[in-house]
Amino acid sequence: MSRSLDHPPRQDTEASVSELVKQASEQMSQLMRQELRLAQAEMKQKGKRFGMGGGLFGGAGVVGFIALQALAATAIVALDLVWPLWGSALAVAVVLLAVAAVLAAAGKKQVRQAAPPAPEQAIDSVKADVAEIKERAHR
């Protein structure tokens, strides 16, 4: 038997290993860049939705505030038939403050339960990539 069949030359083995390491490094770099682009795109989409939602809430708040003023004035005028004007205004103000407190508590609860503004898909993808790399490294 010839020596080249039994034991491949050391330089070829080192070259192959170094090429594999280089390829793995390039692939890891490319994968990380892709994951970062995914995270950036996800955060951009979430940011647009938060912005649009905030603008819509703002518009609803302005219109709601004007409507509430009209309703409060109507309620005060209606209660003026039964109580003095100052008593009617006080009663309407107390009711409005109670409604505001309930809405604030409900809003606080919703904000606490909101999903974190993190790129969840990208994070899950990176975790899966790391797990796959670890699994292949142990083989």
Rank of each mutant, 00 (worst) to 15 (best):
A24Q: 06
L79F: 14
Q34P: 08
T13I: 15
A15C: 05
A114V: 04
L85D: 13
F50V: 14
L68D: 06
A73S: 14
L68S: 07
V62G: 00
R139A: 08
W83H: 09
P116I: 04
L90V: 09
L20P: 00
G107P: 02
E26G: 02
Q40R: 12
A98C: 15
S25W: 06
G47K: 09
Q40V: 09
K127T: 08
M32E: 13
A137W: 13
Q30V: 11
D6H: 07
I66W: 03
R136F: 02
V94A: 12
P8S: 04
I66C: 01
A75I: 05
V95H: 00
D129Q: 07
A60M: 06
L103E: 14
M1R: 03
W83P: 04
W83G: 05
E14Y: 03
L38G: 05
Q110F: 07
L81G: 08
L90I: 06
Q23Y: 02
D124P: 02
W86Y: 14
S29L: 11
Q110K: 11
A67E: 07
A98L: 07
Q69D: 08
V77L: 07
L90H: 01
A128L: 08
Q113G: 01
K44W: 09
Q45N: 12
E14K: 01
Q23I: 11
V62C: 00
A100Y: 05
A24R: 05
A91P: 00
D124Y: 09
A39P: 05
P9M: 10
R139Y: 02
I133M: 10
L81P: 02
H138L: 15
P119H: 04
A78K: 09
A104Y: 15
P8G: 10
F57L: 12
A93E: 15
V77Q: 12
D6V: 15
M52C: 08
G59P: 01
L97G: 01
Q69F: 05
A115F: 04
Q110P: 00
R136Y: 01
K108F: 05
L103Q: 13
M43L: 15
E120G: 06
S25P: 01
K108H: 06
A114N: 06
E120P: 02
F65L: 03
A115T: 11
K127E: 12
L71R: 15
V95R: 00
K46Q: 15
Q110D: 10
A93I: 13
A91Y: 04
A115M: 05
G53S: 06
A60T: 01
L71Q: 13
E42T: 01
G87W: 06
G61C: 00
R3F: 07
A67I: 01
A100C: 14
Q30S: 15
L38N: 02
G54E: 03
V95T: 03
P116E: 03
L81Y: 14
A98V: 11
A128K: 14
S125P: 03
R3C: 08
K127F: 10
R3I: 12
S4K: 08
K108A: 12
T74Q: 06
A101L: 15
Q27K: 10
M28K: 09
P84K: 10
V17F: 04
L36I: 13
Q69A: 06
F50P: 01
A41Y: 00
M43H: 03
V99E: 01
L71G: 12
H7G: 01
L38K: 03
A24T: 04
A98D: 08
G55T: 13
H138K: 13
S16T: 07
G59I: 03
K44G: 04
L56T: 10
